[in-house]
Amino acid sequence: MSDTTRDGLADRFEENRPRLRALAYRTLGSAAEADDAVQETWLRLDRAGAGEVDNLPAWLTTVCGRICLDMLRSRTTRREQPLSEINDPPSAVESVLADEVEAALLIVLGTLAPAERLAFVLHDLFAVSFDEIAVVVGRTPQASRQLASRARRRVRAAAPAATEPRGRAVVDAFLSASRGGDLGALLELLDPDVVLRATGEAARLDAQGERRGAEVVARYFAGKAQAAVPALVDGAWGFAVFIGGELRVAVAMEIKNGQILGLTAASSPAALAGLTVTPL
């Protein structure tokens, strides 16, 4: 490949770079890894040469998607990077997503299987057809459609949590205080008029199935939540208890301005079957 041809190919690649980086970031959740994926995409294009590529944008999407999928599958740990840590101008990444979806994606995408995550990102955020996605993920178009559909349901279920971005920190602090029996910390997190409600056998409460007031609720949870993990419960911040891989208890929280206004607990099989619970 002549230097002139290579320069022309590089220019065409640069035209596609913002889109590729947005795709890689949405798939990987890390700006550094996204840069690595885009750089590897360029190296593969450079090796292939212009003569091997008929539709450059589609080729780049396929190659970048496969690289991201391989990186997801080989990853042993994941750190989702907040969008604010990216130095690109808004048009490069932030405009890819509607504002109300952004926070929910950062929460939920990390819980999806690699192929689900990539299928969702490619189709719902970049309008790639399922025929093309099938090539990237190594599935049939129908199977690719199902991957994206499952991911979409989980993202939609998580959307309400985006309205309280500090919710995860509140949940973590609540569970830590509960496990440690720290009444003071619990009282700081609970609204004075907080209400704990239960369905089925989620808690042994009074005849009305609820407890009211910060001190009452704090004393109820002090020393508990030993096996609880943060979770999204029908899109609300909360926590869940799994025993032997089976969901036993789910608690949804109503959080506003960093304080817990209410908790709704469920543990009966019927109640739990009607919930969408996503461990975080």
Rank of each mutant, 00 (worst) to 15 (best):
M1S: 08
S2I: 00
L9A: 09
F13R: 03
E14G: 01
E15T: 15
N16G: 02
N16E: 14
A22D: 01
A22V: 05
L23K: 02
Y25M: 10
T27V: 13
L28S: 04
A32M: 11
A32P: 01
D35G: 14
A37P: 03
Q39E: 11
Q39S: 15
R47C: 09
G49P: 03
E52W: 04
E52G: 06
N55C: 10
L56P: 00
W59P: 03
W59I: 09
L60V: 04
R66H: 09
M71G: 11
L72S: 05
R73T: 08
T76M: 11
R78E: 12
R78W: 13
P82K: 05
P89N: 05
P90F: 09
A92P: 00
A92M: 03
E94N: 06
A98S: 13
V101L: 13
A103P: 00
L105C: 15
L105M: 15
V108T: 15
L109T: 03
L109W: 01
T111C: 01
L112S: 02
L112D: 05
E116S: 08
R117F: 04
L118S: 07
D124H: 14
F126V: 06
E132P: 01
I133D: 01
A134E: 03
V136H: 04
V136E: 05
V136L: 06
G138N: 03
P141E: 07
S144Q: 10
L147M: 13
S149M: 10
R150V: 10
R156F: 11
A159V: 15
A159K: 10
T163Y: 12
E164Q: 14
P165W: 06
P165C: 06
R166D: 14
G167Y: 07
R168S: 09
R168K: 10
G180W: 07
D182T: 05
D182A: 12
A185R: 07
D191M: 00
D193M: 09
T199W: 09
D206R: 11
Q208R: 14
E210L: 13
R212F: 01
A214Q: 04
A218N: 04
Y220S: 05
F221R: 07
A222R: 06
Q226S: 11
A227E: 14
A231E: 01
L232Q: 01
F239V: 04
A240H: 10
G244F: 07
E246P: 09
E246M: 07
L247W: 04
R248P: 04
V249W: 07
A250M: 05
A252G: 14
M253S: 09
I255F: 05
I255A: 09
I255Y: 09
I260Q: 03
T264I: 07
T264M: 10
P269A: 11
A270E: 15
A270W: 03
A271E: 13
A273E: 13
V277C: 08
T278W: 05
T278R: 02
T278V: 15
